[in-house]
């Protein structure tokens, strides 16, 4: 699939879809995923009951690819078990890395399988995988913010923040 078909058939439609774009009431898991270099920022929320993802949604801003990927992912995992969701994550990453090529495996991803075409624009792969990384970490119990590019040691662990009439070292 070339970039034009990817955009016109998949990305544009799904990035504007609103049915998965909402906070989840009574969410058991909530994690914000950001790509600082491009400004993609999504908060993924879902509710797990008896090991089943009974509801999921996302809020945030970003490019069409990151937004479409999040929506397609939520379509796929809603109503599925946590283990099934992890299975889909493995297939998705395998597909993106080109390690999984078999159609019958990739077809398990349903409409999200179309994102295989993102390989034609390597610079945008990080947009396509953001929501999936965020889901993976949220399923592992992480909450808060997941920053996929930040250094663990910014300025020896400190930052500068406005404080009243001056700047102070935190």
């Amino acid at each position: 699939m070339d970039l034009k078909s990817l955009y016109t058939q998949i990305i544009t439609e799904n990035s504007r879809a609103t049915h998965n774009r909402h906070p989840v009431i009574g969410a058991t898991n909530s994690l914000e995923g950001i790509n600082p270099s491009c400004g993609d920022d999504i908060t993924l929320q879902f509710k797990v009951e008896n090991d089943i993802i009974v509801d999921a949604g996302f809020i945030g801003t970003g490019c069409a690819i990151s937004q479409a990927s999040a929506s397609l992912m939520i379509d796929l995992i809603k109503g599925k078990s946590v283990d099934e969701a992890k299975h889909y994550i493995d297939i998705f990453f395998g597909m993106i890395k080109g390690e999984i090529k078999e159609d019958e495996v990739i077809d398990e991803l349903e409409d999200a399988a179309a994102l295989q075409g993102i390989a034609v624009v390597p610079a945008r792969v990080k947009c396509a995988v953001l929501s999936w990384h965020t889901l993976e970490e949220a399923l592992e119990g992480k909450s808060g913010v997941s920053d996929h590019e930040a250094s663990e040691n910014d300025d020896a662990g400190s930052s500068y923040e406005e404080d009243g009439d001056g700047l102070s070292l935190n």
């Binding site: 070339d2 970039l3 034009k4 955009y7 990305i11 270099s37 491009c38 400004g39 970003g62 490019c63 069409a64 690819i65 624009v121 610079a123 945008r124 947009c127």
Partner: peptide, 22 residues
């Protein structure tokens, strides 16, 4: 409301290099 990275990718497909981001 097209995200700048989508604009830059589409322009790149047309052989045009522009910058997108902050």
């Amino acid at each position: 409301d097209v995200h700048p990275h989508d604009v830059a990718s589409i322009m790149d497909a047309n052989g045009v290099a522009i910058r997108a981001g902050h």
